[in-house]
Simulated scan of single mutants.
Amino acid sequence: MKTEVLCLLFACLGASTALTRKQEAAELSRRRVALPGLRRTSTTAAPLKEAEYVDDEYEEEIQLPKQCPELNGYFPAADQCDKYYDCRDGKFTEKLCPDGLVFNDFSPQHEKCDLPFGIDCSKRPKRQPPQSSPHCPRMHGYFAHEDARNCDTFYYCVEGKFNKITCPAGLVFSEKTGICNWPDEAQKKGCGSRDLFNFTCPHVVESVAATHPRYADSEDCQYFYVCVNGEIPRRSGCKLGQAFDERTGKCDWARKIPECKEWYSDQLTDEELDALENPRPKAKPSGGSSRRKGNRPTNEK
């Protein structure tokens, strides 16, 4: 009360003299007790000493919900991979990715739903109930053929509508990566190299195996097998018009390889083979104004 009387007295007299540091600290302590909402510490904290000087700027403590690690940003749900939270000024809105996509939490500043390939959902494995349609277990994504024995066919689904896609020869659709891959890398049950190819890599010494030897496909001149480390066969092929030459271990024009010179006779004419073997040079562009400095076209009339 003494301090308040002094303050009122000074105000009435128009005095400009400031309070001493001791008086200022005492007054500040009184205000903090009267307005606990401005305190950053609990009410059980030790009181200020009279001789202690304290800055008079205090921030109100903000209690963020567990869904918002920061005031603003996009954050994944703790248990569900396709759910996330849009946080604005500490308040959150719960959101779901389109069915089949999951939230990509690579940066809190970006709101991005993505295909699940390459995104770790092991710690938040739950997903929304699927909205399935023919060939599409979910509305969005890449999905294997329903027949497990069909190794190279898959479906690309958007909004529940599918496109049927077939992998290039020798490759298998990988459900782990969503792309076509070598059978030994796709690791799809029933779709390994031994299941697909009527070929087994011959046993060779270690030095030869290290070169990944190649062998002709006995049933198709255009194709051959690469034996990775001499053990794992991968079927590969030459471009149209060519065949694999087992003597050189390379592709060459089929008509130059005695055992394959007639391979394309029922597919391409001699004229078409000639065009493949001796392609015409591409015509150089002609005409048009130069873009070099000093030769730009003018707009003079």
Rank of each mutant, 00 (worst) to 15 (best):
C7E: 01
G14A: 07
R21Q: 12
E24W: 04
A26Y: 04
A26Q: 12
L28G: 13
T41L: 08
T44Q: 13
T44V: 15
L48M: 09
E57P: 00
E61N: 11
E61S: 13
L64E: 04
Q67G: 07
E70I: 03
N72D: 14
D89S: 14
E94V: 15
P98T: 05
L101P: 04
L101A: 09
F106W: 08
P108V: 10
G118W: 08
I119A: 04
C121F: 04
P130R: 11
Q131Y: 01
S132R: 11
S133W: 03
H140P: 02
Y142P: 01
A148K: 15
D152A: 15
F154W: 07
N163F: 07
C167T: 10
C167A: 09
F173L: 09
E175R: 14
K176G: 03
T177P: 02
W182E: 13
W182Q: 11
D195L: 06
L196Q: 01
F197R: 10
C201M: 07
V205H: 12
P213N: 06
Y215N: 05
A216Y: 00
C221R: 07
C227K: 03
I232T: 15
I232L: 09
R234I: 13
C238L: 08
L240W: 02
L240N: 04
R247C: 05
R247W: 01
T248S: 14
C260N: 06
K261S: 13
S265L: 03
L268S: 08
D270M: 07
E272M: 11
N278M: 03
R280A: 15
K284Q: 12
S289P: 02
S290Q: 02
